[in-house]
């Protein structure tokens, strides 16, 4: 979804890109069992609740980093919290 929105990738290309970034196969992306563990390990959010696990903004920080994309709400948060290394406001 994020690669379609941010880079206009068609679905096969988007799945391949995300799979490579997460070091899984495109088929793994649709496997609920595998992805539960992978998502928890990477801190990119899980569907069912995981106490102490990343979700929401914390997960989006990791998603932006792993996929190499800009997520607008993450950037807004970083600006407000003064987290940009270059001091961007």
């Amino acid at each position: 979804m994020r690669m379609q929105l941010s880079r206009r990738m068609r679905l096969p290309e988007a799945k391949k890109y995300v799979a490579e970034k997460l070091k899984v196969t495109p088929a793994d992306l649709s496997d609920e069992v595998k992805m539960r563990d992978i998502r928890a390990d990477l801190g990119i959010g899980t569907i069912s609740s995981l106490v102490g696990g990343a979700n929401g903004m914390a997960a989006k920080f990791k998603i932006a980093e792993l996929l190499g994309i800009e997520i607008s709400s993450v950037n807004k948060f970083k600006q407000k919290a003064g987290l940009f290394a270059d001091g961007r406001k």
């Binding site: 979804m1 979700n55 929401g56 903004m57 989006k60 998603i63």
Partner: peptide, 12 residues
């Protein structure tokens, strides 16, 4: 929108 962003993982 701003508040929901903090809790939401998928694109809004």
């Amino acid at each position: 929108v701003e508040t929901t962003h903090l809790l939401l993982t998928v694109p809004m």
